[in-house]
Amino acid sequence: MPVRPSRRLRSLRKVLLGVTGLVGFLLVWQLIPALGLISPEYLPYVTDVAVRLVDELRDLAFWRRLGLTMTAWAIGLTVATLAAVVLGTIVGLVPFLRRATHTTVEFLRPIPSVALIPLAVLMFGIQMQSALVIIVFAAFWQVFVQVIYGVADVDAVARDTARSFGLTRRERLSHLVLPTALPYLMTGLRLAAAVALILAITAEMVIGNLGLGRMIELSRSAGDAVGMYALVVVTGVLGLLVNLVFRLIERRSLGWHQSVRGEEVS
């Protein structure tokens, strides 16, 4: 076996390989229309898409649409998280409630939230509220289920100890339940953030409220393939950013935790 390369060398190799992969992909993308495998009408050149991307980034209208999408995302995520934390904590702490709500939760959770799009449109029309219904419904379950698991996961010995030391309900909540449930909550939050973004853009595509999703759909129906691919790339970058930020928050808030055990639950 050869001598192990140092850690820095290894991470350099990793970055280099990763960049090679990306460049290779872009090259293949450029070659497919160039060789005529797919007409540029359907799969435009990478270079054209990149130019359009830069144009969009300089356009105020683009940023406004992006702002609308992210507003719906943020409101939906906040509402869903708050509701899920409150309800999840109550249900998780009371065994009776946990048993009584089990079937209802297991029935409602698998319903694909996009199935509610027609209902939301009937109720609110082509507005952000319709999108919010769907975002909240989808994001809520991600957090809710994790909070219930987390709250119920309190170590039995620790709980009995706290009780015998006469900790009040509030003290037990902040010193015992919260630290136990936090890793679960963070996992739920990260999943919910990703799901909320997916549904914010989906809702705009299907319902037609203003935002990035609607722009994608409009450029498709207008036959503007270059613009469509540019926007798809934008949504991908958004997804990456959301993932990255929430992973960071997760790591930050769990710095004290010996293991990031929430990772396994996802």
């Binding site: 190799r13 990793k14 390989l17 990763g18 960049v19 090679t20 992969g21 990306l22 290779g24 992909f25 973004l197 997916i198 853009i201 989906t202 595509m205 299907v206 999703g213 994608i216 759909e217 498709r220 469509m228 691919y229 926007l231 798809v232 949504t235 991908g236 970058v237 958004l238 997804g239 990456l240 959301v242 993932n243």
Partner: peptide
């Protein structure tokens, strides 16, 4: 290591935007 950044990006794309591309 070659494919990981690429795959992460594809995963991050909200799946429903693939429908216009597919169409």
């Amino acid at each position: 290591e070659l494919l990981e950044p690429l795959l992460e990006f594809f995963r991050a794309i909200p799946p429903p935007v693939l429908i216009p591309i597919g169409m």
